[in-house]
């Protein structure tokens, strides 16, 4: 092999350091939502810290967006956002930073339970109420948990499909990553929902939440089976990928159902006639601010709030969907 001359070692190291900086840097993108109480007549101003585990997912970007929009309606709320970029220890540091800067309330959407339980408990001990969003922590040292139930959503999707197909037909299931809890729950809930009907799952594959993979798997299903009535995908991009595959193959008469219902994804697909239905996996952002205000005003809040889902289909998408419980 060609040996590099000495001075280049330095360059190599410098670029390594640069890479490290690129990875580690710029994590504390703090934005303020709602200007903190300008006039003296305004109610007491509160600062809320929001620790997000990963802004790489559009759904979590939406969660922050929901929190920002909800907080903007209250001029006395100021929200500081931190993104841990899918790094548990970074998120732990963010929680500790919020505690030492003495925010009035902490909202956290934790990356994982075990390593973040203690830092959150310490925030509680320091007198800062904590609202946990979407993923759970261990124990009960938090003020309130707000989250949705994937199993319930999967079941609702299953029941809707039974009703829409009249209880029989061939189904292709494109599953989210099966080593992840949402993927498993959306599958088992769906099985519960279609139990007792004559629906047959003729092809199921793990598309790992990825649209290109969903398209690939759907192509395989199309080349194997001449009669497919409906595709149930565990997320909207998956359903969209399946739709593109069927359209390219010139196959018609297939219905497509997805989950998540982000405004610019699933809901948009339903409005455009691409998907037949999508079930919302709510971010809980607006509810978190609502609950935060109650906590800050000294009202009691339930320990756990399970969010319902919304159905968006062709009939109701223009009216903003239909609440399911």
């Amino acid at each position: 092999m060609n040996s590099q001359p000495k001075p280049n070692c330095l360059l190599a190291w410098m670029s390594l350091v640069l890479t490290a900086l690129l990875w580690g840097g710029c994590s504390d993108s703090s934005k303020t939502a709602g200007d903190a109480a300008k006039s003296d007549a305004a109610p007491r101003a509160y600062t809320i810290g929001m620790s997000q585990c990963n802004l790489g997912e559009p759904w979590r970007v939406q969660m922050n967006e929901d929190i920002k929009n909800a907080a903007a309606k209250h001029s006395n709320l100021k929200v500081i956002f931190k993104d841990a970029q899918n790094d548990t220890l970074k998120q732990r540091a963010h929680v500790e930073e919020f505690v030492s800067s003495k925010v009035d309330l902490l909202i956290i959407s934790p990356k994982e339970a075990q390593p973040l339980t203690e830092p959150v408990a310490r925030a509680m001990e320091a007198g800062i109420p904590v609202i946990v969003l979407d993923r759970r922590l261990l124990g009960d040292k938090y003020t309130c948990f707000i989250g949705a139930d994937n199993k319930k959503i999967g079941k609702a999707a299953g029941e809707w499909i039974v009703k829409t197909l009249g209880g029989q037909g061939n189904i292709v299931e494109l599953m989210g990553l099966q080593t992840s809890t949402p993927g498993q729950d959306r599958h088992s809930g769906f099985l519960e929902g279609i139990a007792g009907s004559n629906l047959k799952i003729i092809f199921s594959a793990d598309m790992k939440w990825l649209e290109p993979d969903a398209r690939k798997e759907m192509e395989s299903a199309l080349s194997r089976f001449d009669k497919i009535d409906l595709v149930y995908a565990h997320n909207d991009p998956g359903a969209h990928g399946a739709y593109l595959a069927a359209k390219a193959a010139g196959r018609t008469g297939i219905k497509f159902v997805g989950i998540d219902a982000l405004p610019q994804e699933g809901v948009a697909y339903v409005s455009q006639g691409i998907l037949d239905a999508t079930f919302q996996y709510p971010t809980g952002g607006a509810e978190a601010i609502e609950t935060a205000l109650k906590v800050l005003h000294g009202e009691t809040v339930p320990k756990e709030i399970v969010l319902g889902t919304r159905l968006f289909d062709k009939a109701n998408v223009a009216q903003g969907g239909q609440e399911l419980n």
Partner: peptide, 14 residues
């Protein structure tokens, strides 16, 4: 600049 391609393209990847 004779940085090893593995490192240079790793940096560009990020």
């Amino acid at each position: 600049l004779r940085v090893q391609p593995f490192i240079a393209t790793l940096a560009l990847m990020v």
